[in-house]
Amino acid sequence: MVLLGSVGLMASSAVLLENLTHRYAGEIRPVLVIDKLEIEEGSFVALIGASGVGKSTLLRLLDGRLRGWKGRASVLGHALSARTAPPRSRRSEIGYVFQEFALVESASVRQNVLNGRLGSTHSGWSLIGRFSDVDQSAAEQAMRDVGITKFAERRVDRLSGGQRQRVAIARVLAQEPKLILADEPLSNLDPVNSKIILELLRECAANRGATLIATSHQPRLIAPFVDRFIALDGGSITFDGVPSAVDEGLLASIYNDDDGKDHSEAAE
């Protein structure tokens, strides 16, 4: 088991990675090779890069769901283990917005949002459908924040893509996380809804003092909302800087492969 001691950690670091590598079974090339990465608490960071460069793998690692990596990783001041999942209490501190929403389609919006409380509520009572007042009010607040209170009792499979994305975000907000990881939160949305969701994510994270890390294939769209861009290529960090430093030339080098083909959605 690889652990990271508290020595050398900055008090304001939400994420700290050192000498980190990961290789999937049967693969020769590693999917992640990160010498050092530090992300400040309360910031909004966008992970960009072509498909398959390791963005989602990095998010899964930070969420404590990736096994077998090597190096040192610390999230919210706690060392991650490459062999075991984080304890229940720490898992609920990290919210994960899934690319395909990962909602229970046949359940109501309210139940899906309440599911975000499962990590912190009493396990026994929750099995018979009882959630505490604290859980109920956290879910209500989350639904209010993303504007889905009016269809709280509706089944998720009756909602549009944009509404589902809001439910997925509300479930994460109901967790009251200190770190929000969003995997391609705009992939199923049109440009108008994308901007609304980005604004919503930034606002909700800021109100809760949470750190927000999102992967995206739309750097131009996301640029006005984020504090920092991190670009990955072949699992390594090839750019780390503020949005103003991201120009067309840099985006072209990030998204163009050897054949000169542009993989960026925004470039179309």
């Binding site: 769901r65 898992r91 609920s92 909602l103 599911n115 499962l118 990590g119 396990s123 479930r171 967790q175």
Partner: peptide
């Protein structure tokens, strides 16, 4: 959806139930 509940900290029985 089951992975999402695990990510949120749900126990095995909670994942089965919800």
């Amino acid at each position: 959806p089951v992975d999402a509940l695990e990510s949120a900290g749900a126990t095995f029985l909670q994942r089965m139930r919800y």
